[in-house]
Design a protein around this nucleic acid. Structure first.
Lengths: 208, 208
DNA sequence: CGGCATCCGTGACGATACTG
DNA sequence: CAGTATCGTCACGGATGCCG
């Protein structure tokens, strides 16, 4: 079960760490920000987590109101885990961590796992406006819902329906995007990125 | 030593958790945001941490560039630990955690430790402008440096020198401040808070 | 006395195997 | 597919000891 080991400090940050400070918990939230996921999918996208720890965390998170367990309607009646609004509110925490962590990211190490939708978190900060953007990296395709107020924040694979903009670039450019001003415009000019679409969002992307 | 257990994921949030995801690490950062502290002071303000874990975390954090160990000039030549700029950049992470954690804070539990300067983190977000504010709670006195770009972000005890504003309130009001609009103005009107000072910062406090 | 290092019991973690 | 069971290992928390 969860932190029966509380810090026992009357401090909101310590209370937050009581709930999400355990190993893997925030990474599970990162996965669920992509929408409802099955146990096996979570396990596949969290290399290194053991089955019992994943099961234990999911129980804790449900008890603490971060996630809900729901049975999918047939066919394919499986269980999925999804974030509650309270759990979704952890997005700023993950963004702050991600922003800080970009300073340590560097090049991928040989031992590093990579998933395309992990680039969604830093990309989200760089996006102004609202709309759906589909992003194609060599590592795979994902999509982000900029400005979404409920439901998934991003997702794996192509966007459901026609996106407001399509982005084709390499992962290095995608990582650089979160950092700088004009990085995308420069990348487009340099040929290492392509923006497709005529929505306001696509236009603003070309100018950023 | 530190996370010899890396998540091994090419993701900036996971990298951040590699560095600061260990138990106690972020709470040590919270303490050091108040300025340089000695080992014994850290141990006193982090009830529950064992001596060896504290020593180990401080070593890890120094190795990872989050903190520096410095010898104080005589008299009283002791070692102090302080944040590097890189470590200070974790402030947004702690603020995001603190903001989220306020939803779980509630009333102090009998087992909870309390330190006055733990209220500085949520208060900082509520402060517009720049300047020094001295805050007096029943639990003690602390001060915050709003808009500080280097050096400590807050501190225990009275402000060094004359603050731009003085605040007298109870901890419940202080906790409520971070949440709402006009909370401080209402508290002043209701008599549960007092603002002293004629600086622009004090004026803006009275109006917020 | 401040600043750790050592020892020890308990619990959390990671890997594998197994079951409904 | 979705976990539970088992087990070895390591991290944590508490106490105590050492050393300047």
């Amino acid at each position: 079960m969860s932190p029966r080991r509380s810090y026992d400090q009357y401090c909101s940050a310590a209370r937050a760490l009581d709930a999400v400070g355990d190993r893997w918990t925030l990474l599970i939230v990162r996965e669920l920000l992509a929408g409802p996921r099955r146990y096996t999918d979570l396990h596949a996208d969290l290399p290194g987590v053991s089955t019992d720890v994943l099961a234990s965390r999911l129980k804790d998170m449900e008890r603490d109101g971060l996630t809900a367990r729901r049975r999918l309607p047939p066919p394919g009646a499986a269980f999925v885990y999804e974030l509650t609004p309270r759990g979704r509110d952890l997005l700023p925490v993950l963004q702050a961590l991600g922003e800080w962590g970009e300073g340590e990211l560097g090049e991928p190490r040989p031992t590093d796992a990579v998933r395309a939708h992990w680039f969604a978190l830093p990309l989200l900060r760089a996006l102004e406006g609202e709309g759906t953007v589909e992003v194609s990296l060599e590592e795979g395709v994902f999509h982000v819902f900029a400005g979404a107020r409920s439901g998934p924040v991003y997702g794996d694979g192509p966007a459901p329906g026609e996106p407001d903009a399509r982005l084709v670039l390499d992962s290095a450019t995608c990582a650089a995007l979160a950092h700088g001003e004009g990085a995308l415009a420069d990348a487009v000019r340099g040929g290492s990125a392509t923006v497709t679409g005529d929505s306001p969002l696509a236009k603003s992307l070309r100018e950023t």
